[in-house]
Design a protein around this nucleic acid. Sequence first.
DNA 1: AAAAAAC
Length: 504
Amino acid sequence: MSFSNLGLSEKVLAAVAATGYTNPTPIQEQAIPHVLARKDVLGIAQTGTGKTAAFVLPMLTILEKGRARARMPRTLILEPTRELAAQVKENFDRYGAGQKLNVALLIGGVSFGDQDAKLMRGVDVLIATPGRLLDHTERGGLLLTGVELLVIDEADRMLDMGFIPDIERVCKLVPFTRQTLFFTATMPPEIRRITEAFLHNPQKIEVSRPATTAVTVTQAQVPAGREAHEKRELLRRLLREAKDLKNAIIFCNRKREVAIVHKSLQKHGFSVGALHGDMDQSARTAALEQFRKGELPLLVASDVAARGLDIPEVSHVFNFDVPHHADDYVHRIGRTGRAGRTGTAISIVTPLDQKSMVAIEKLIGQSIPRAEGDYEVSAEASDASERPREQRGRERSRGGRGKPQRGRDRERSHEPRDARGEARHAAESRPPSEPRQPAESRHRSDDKRRAEPRHEARQQANISHVPSIGRPEPRRQREVDTEPGDHSHLPAFLLRPVRSPAGA
DNA sequence: AAAAAAC
C-alpha cells in the first residue's frame, strides 16, 4: 500500500514524498479515505501509530478548496496539552508548506492579542487547548459557526483531565452538520457515551492498541530506599552506569519533585532540562526544543511529557518515581523503543511502590527483572548528617532506629511532614526581612505572577532554568547532595557546558 | 498519592 491510492491531492502527496515517507501506517491507510469521503471517524489508536498524519493529510486535501472568513475558522482541532497542540501545528506547517493556509494555535501561556489578530485575518485550521479556546469564544473574538470539520484528539486523556464539560460546550458551538473525527486510546464508558452524542454513524477504526510495551524496550526495576535523597543518589549512579545512553527522560510523579531532581542533577554537573505544567510556556517550549535537538541529553519531566509527545530516539526512560497508575507506566516507557529501535526503561522502586509494580506487571503481562544488589543504596550506608534535621529528630525520638520504617507506621509518620512540615520548613528558610504570608496566598498564582518577570531575563540566557513552582524550596535540598563540584566521573556529553558563548 | 488547563 502506498499513499498514492488513498485519494490525497497531488500537493499533499508531494509534501509527504518530500518528508521521505512512502507507506501509510495502518491507521492512516484506514482513516484517510473515510475522512476524504467526509464521514465521521472514531479512531481507537495511541500516539506513535501515525494518528496525527491520519487527520492532517486529508484535512489539507479538503482545505485546498475554499477560503476562511474573519473570526470563523473552517476546521478546529482540540488537544489536551499545549505541547501536543504545538506538535499538531508543526505537522500542518510541514505538510502544508505548499499551500497558503492560515493555521492558528490557541493555547494558554502566550499572548492573547497575537492570537486574536490572527483570528481576525481568518484561519483555515485552528488548533487549541480547551481553556484558551473558550476564553476567545466568550470574549466574542471567535465564532465556531463556520467549522466544517472538528477533531477531538486524545479524548480519553481529556476525560482524565476533566475537560469533557469544556468539550461538550465547544460541541454546542459548532454546527450540527459538521464532520467529526474522534480519537482515543481507550474506550471507558464515559468516552463511549460522548462518542454516541458527538458522532453520527462513525466509521470505527481500531489499530493494535498495545496495553503492552514494545518488545524492543529492555525494562528493569532497581530497589531504592524511600528517602528522596537516596533516590537522587541512585539516579545519578544509574545515569553514569547506563549502557549506550544517548538521551533520557526522567519521570517524576510531582511537579515539585521535577524541579528538585532537575536542580540536583544540574548541581552535580549534568546537562539537563525540565518540563512540567507550572513552568511558564517559553521555558516549556525551550526545554522541549533543546531536548529534541539533542542539545540537552537529559530531561526531567512530569506526566505532561508521558503521552503523545513526539520525541524521536529516546534511548532511556527512568522512572524516578513509579507511576501510581499502571497505564501511565506504559505511556512513559513508550517514549523509548519507538519505531523498532531499542530502548531501556529503568524504574526506581521503593518498598512503597511494590503494589504499583505488581499492577504494572499485571497490565503489561510480563515481569520486570529486578536489577541485583549492585544498585542498592541502603539507608544505613548513607551518612546521617546528610539527612534532614527533622528526619533525624524523628529517628531519635523513635529510639535511634536506623532502618526505614515500613507499612502503616511509616505512612502515618510521613503525613505531617508532607502536609504541614514542609510549608513550615519553607517559611523558616525565608529571610527574616521578608513578610510572612498565610500559606494559602503563598501557594500559587500570587507568588508566581510576581516572581515571573524577575526570572524572564534569566530564562532568556539560561533556558534550563526552572522557575519556582510556588514556594521556596526547603533548605533540606542544600544539605542532601554532597560534592557537587566534582564531575570528573561523568561522560563528557552529559556534562553541563560551563558557559558557551551565545550563538557559537 | 498527581498531572493537566484560562486570565
